[in-house]
Simulated scan of single mutants.
Amino acid sequence: MLERRLSLIAASCLLTAGCFEKEVNPRPVKTSSQVHVPGQLPSFVKLEHTKKIDWSKKVQHFASEKVELTGNPNKSAYLGPQLQVNQPEKWMWLFWKESGSLMTIAAFHKNSGTFEPILYDGTEAAIWSRNGLGSAIHGANLHTPSNVMLPKAGEWALLVYIDQKLFDVLLIDVIG
């Protein structure tokens, strides 16, 4: 009798635990005072910033101090490979701007009209912003490394904000 009760209790616990198991989110989002979850864009990121995008002006490949970069010459660029869907990569961001400390990247998907965070912190959580831009490198005034990833193939506009002001837009293609 006691064995049967223990078996029923154990089975009940297993069934209950299975019903309430958390769903795994492949793109967890970290929240803090400077990081916002999708759907909660930083307040300075505006949909109107996407209205004037000329989607034909893709990023260029160019050399700065003999280093191949991708971006908009003398404005902003990155050093890193082309993105593939859900494949994390390491990029070095470079900015031709005299000063700044907070970088925010809001990735806007052309076909779906949605924003996604592209940056990842050391725990693989998606974030909107990264504080602490470094000094001059490869001809640019500011730089910072980051992990990046996007969830969908297609055309993306990377809206680059420095200290909460729109600084540049990088148009990239993510391959599937």
Results as ranks from 00 to 15, higher is better:
M1W: 09
L2T: 09
L2E: 12
E3R: 14
E3A: 14
E3I: 09
R5S: 04
R5Q: 09
R5Y: 12
L6I: 13
L6D: 14
S7Y: 07
L8D: 10
L8V: 02
I9C: 08
A10N: 05
A11D: 13
G18E: 05
G18I: 02
G18S: 12
C19H: 05
E23M: 02
E23L: 05
V24W: 04
N25Y: 01
N25A: 03
P26I: 04
P28H: 03
K30F: 15
S33E: 14
Q34C: 04
H36I: 00
V37G: 07
V37M: 07
P38K: 04
G39R: 05
L41S: 13
F44M: 05
F44P: 08
V45M: 09
K46Y: 05
L47H: 10
E48T: 15
E48N: 11
E48G: 03
H49W: 06
K52Y: 07
I53K: 09
S56R: 11
K57N: 15
K58S: 13
K58F: 11
V59E: 11
Q60H: 09
H61M: 08
A63E: 12
A63D: 08
S64T: 08
S64K: 00
E65C: 01
V67P: 01
V67W: 02
K75D: 01
S76C: 05
S76P: 03
Y78D: 01
P81Q: 12
V85M: 13
N86R: 13
N86H: 10
N86Q: 13
P88I: 03
E89G: 00
W91F: 12
W93Q: 01
W93H: 11
W96S: 02
K97D: 01
E98A: 07
S99N: 11
T104A: 06
T104W: 03
I105C: 06
A107I: 08
H109E: 14
G113A: 11
F115N: 08
E116N: 12
P117D: 06
P117V: 00
L119Y: 02
Y120V: 02
D121I: 04
D121G: 13
T123S: 13
T123D: 13
T123I: 03
A126H: 00
A126Q: 06
I127G: 00
I127H: 01
I127M: 03
W128D: 12
S129N: 08
G134S: 10
A140W: 00
P145T: 15
P145R: 10
V148M: 02
L150E: 08
A153D: 09
G154P: 10
G154E: 11
E155T: 14
W156R: 07
L158R: 02
L159V: 11
Y161E: 08
Y161Q: 10
Y161I: 09
I162Q: 00
D163G: 06
D163Q: 04
Q164D: 14
Q164Y: 07
L166I: 14
F167K: 00
I172L: 09
V174I: 15
G176E: 14
